[in-house]
Design a binder for these strands. Sequence first.
RNA 1: GCGGCCGCAGUCUAGUCUGGUAGGACGCGGGCCUUCCGAGCCCGUUGCCCGGGUUCAAAUCCCGGCGGCCGCACCA
Length: 577
Amino acid sequence: MTEDVYEAIMEVARRRGILFPAFRIYGGARGFYDYGPLGAVLRRKIVDRWRWYYVHREGFMEVDSPTLGISAVYEASGHVDHFMDPMTQCKECGEFYRADHLIEEELGIDCEGKSLEELNELIEKHDIRCPECGGELTEVTEFNLMFSTNIGPKEGRTGYLRPETAQGIFIQFKDLYRLARQRLPFGVVQIGRAYRNEISPRQGVIRLREFTQMEAEVFFDPEEKEVPHFDRYADEELYFYPIEEQLKEDGEMYRMTVREAVEEGLVEQPIAYFLGLTKRFLTDLGIPDEAIRSRQHLPEERAHYARDCWDVEVKLERFGWVEVVGIADRTDYDLRKHSKHSGEDLRAFKELDEPKVVYRPKPKMNELGPRFKSDAPKVAEALREIEAEDPSELEGGLEVEVNGEKIEVPPECYEVVEEKVSGIRFYPHVIEPSYGLDRILYCVLEHNFDPEKGAFKFPAWLAPIEVCVFPLLKRDDMIDVARKIADELSEAGFIVEYDDSGSIGRRYARADEIGVPYCVTVDHDTLDDDTVTIRDRDTTEQVRVHLDDLEDALRRLLLGEANLEDVGEPFSPSQGS
RNA sequence: GCGGCCGCAGUCUAGUCUGGUAGGACGCGGGCCUUCCGAGCCCGUUGCCCGGGUUCAAAUCCCGGCGGCCGCACCA
């Protein structure tokens, strides 16, 4: 076999309706894929599992905001100015390249964080040319990854397809904070499409121009930045690959528990918690423990908004360690930015243990106005910032600074008022676990793929088809019974497929290929005693169960509550009738 | 798209005519009291849609925009 696992998987995936390259009849377009019938189910099940962790268990609120945003949002978030990749183009054939990736491929060096000048120098110095045609390359320029469009007819207003779902949450902070009953910490999740106009997507479903994110934004009081139920995943063991190991010549990842990592100061508690959760989630999907590591971002690769960031990476045959989840400490960056740009106060409020009393000069505008004319509002503003613990400090006039000049404010211009300060306002800090669904789905495919059989072996609950029902022979009496069973199982909630084409062996193989965990077969005995066989995908062993027990047996099998031998009498075809 | 009405806390609303930077109710948070499904009391918290103009000063007056509702038109 010359083809690698990636190609084998994509071949089965395309043939059996998991993934299709998009727009195929028109020649396709890089960076876009369709989910076929089975892929769509698989995707849904992964999303549902994620929801179970984040919405059900963590109790986070799920929202769903527009994928197209007005420009103000992305001006405030910094994406208009910062969400750029370095780009170069071949002068001969016109092909575009990501300059840093191209240099990395050609020279085998790390270009993360290099400036445009540095990239240009490298290209010139090493005479890097177009890998396609050998042509000369243009000067490296910045290219914004957001898709822009117009909102409304004609020129309209500039809009951007969202490059991440997160902003939709930040800009609704006020309402969400209220709905969280104004208590921190709280979390909000969003699952949806995001768009990035990648310069040259090349790795199949790993780098898409339209992809699905599952993101959580968890808001913390910066002074109490801890997950309350930390113990839930604290004893989870995982592989850590922190900055210092990455910088060593022979640096290695090492294994420890989430709790130990926090105690050793390797990673802060909330990020560690979500790393633990993520590992559990990924192993649920059939990705083995040793193919999952938590890698800390190097300072130069962190996004413009992140203080610390850890990726959860999954090891793939062809692509090596691939980031499937990023858990970033976005601090108060986003809320601050949106507060500033929108003028809305996106702070949280915290009551002090002891309210304190202060005294303030309350400006009398009808005195200030005539006296200071156009400076009156500034004087008033300056007065409002004065605060004293003792009212006598405010008696007999005050001095304020306006436009760099000191101004005497006579006492008749203000009134000393007592004010109770009962709390403080602050911007919450955000920890953001962000999952790339499409990449995760590919990892699930690869790690559940048996290259020998060319077949998937998904965890039973995850299989896009849960049960196949076959008549042993294409005989009307068996067909009728099998169809009826399939129908009843379907009504009971199972994802069922009925199949009577070809030989029974062929049908088992077909079911195996797409990872159907259990096949139910109607045979001669069924017609006599209402029993059927259940066949296990991985062992190909069979048991006989009575039709009355079938639903229950399958349910327990799919949930992993029982093994095959627990649900029926052993059966082997040679002993059967 | 056209016409009308309207934009004050999360919600409902006073104030707008007669410019001087906002008051209430419910809600929400904390406490007390109670104790099983929106009881009471105390404390706290939250706001004039945006931009421009007039003015020393705009929730208030003028212009523009945006948004909502209703009607008509158009359309999946």
